[in-house]
């Protein structure tokens, strides 16, 4: 069951990732990215990260990507034209090299890591909201506070950039 779910959602994630790169229209790319995020959320659940899965859906899929889709719709961005001349040979060579590169990386990861036992759903129960909160507000309190300053700066930056004068 665990393997089945992994293969299903890993497949969806890779398919959506390829679709993100291959689609010419930004809205299609954005939806593919949402597909990747959704399937990754399910893989997080499988790895015992229930809070991080929910945060992934709320923050990434529900806030950041809505902002992307909003901007794409607002600018009415059309599909990418073919202004740049790319020969078919270079295109196929690039694809082949990309696949070869990914295969090489996968091989290296598989070879370097020791044989681990399979992932079992429920084997790691330390990812609950309470655990994450405990760690976040004790050990990682300073980074947490610094992030809030970062967000404040981001808000100010966004407002300044979005003003009419610039």
């Amino acid at each position: 069951m665990t393997a089945l779910i992994f293969f299903l959602f890993a497949g969806i994630a890779v398919f959506c990732g390829i679709s993100l790169v291959a689609q010419t229209h930004p809205i299609a790319s954005a939806l593919s990215l949402i597909g990747v995020m959704g399937s990754l959320a399910i893989l997080y659940l499988q790895l015992g990260g229930e809070f991080i899965a929910a945060a992934q859906m709320i923050v990434y899929a529900g806030a950041i990507m809505v902002l992307f889709v909003f901007v794409i719709m607002l600018l009415n961005a059309g599909a990418e034209g073919t202004s740049l001349r790319v020969s078919a040979f270079a295109k196929y060579l690039g694809m082949f090299l990309l696949v070869a590169f990914l295969g090489l990386i996968s091989f290296i990861i598989q070879a370097m890591l020791p044989r681990t036992e399979g992932v079992v759903f429920g084997a790691f129960k330390g990812g609950t909201t309470a655990d994450v909160g405990m760690k976040l507000f004790t050990v990682y309190l300073l980074p947490f506070e610094v992030t809030s300053v970062l967000i404040l700066i981001a808000i100010l930056g966004a407002i300044v950039l979005a003003r009419k004068e610039i």
């Binding site: 809205i27 939806l31 949402i34 229930e50 809070f51 899965a53 929910a54 945060a55 859906m57 709320i58 899929a61 529900g62 806030a63 809505v66 889709v69 909003f70 719709m73 609950t128 909201t129």
Partner: peptide, 22 residues
């Protein structure tokens, strides 16, 4: 019953905007 049931509902409702927007 999810341990994060309330977060789940918030997550789904925040994704729900795509139907209308698309």
């Amino acid at each position: 019953d999810l341990n994060v049931g309330i977060l789940f509902v918030i997550a789904i409702s925040s994704v729900g905007v795509y139907g209308v927007a698309l």
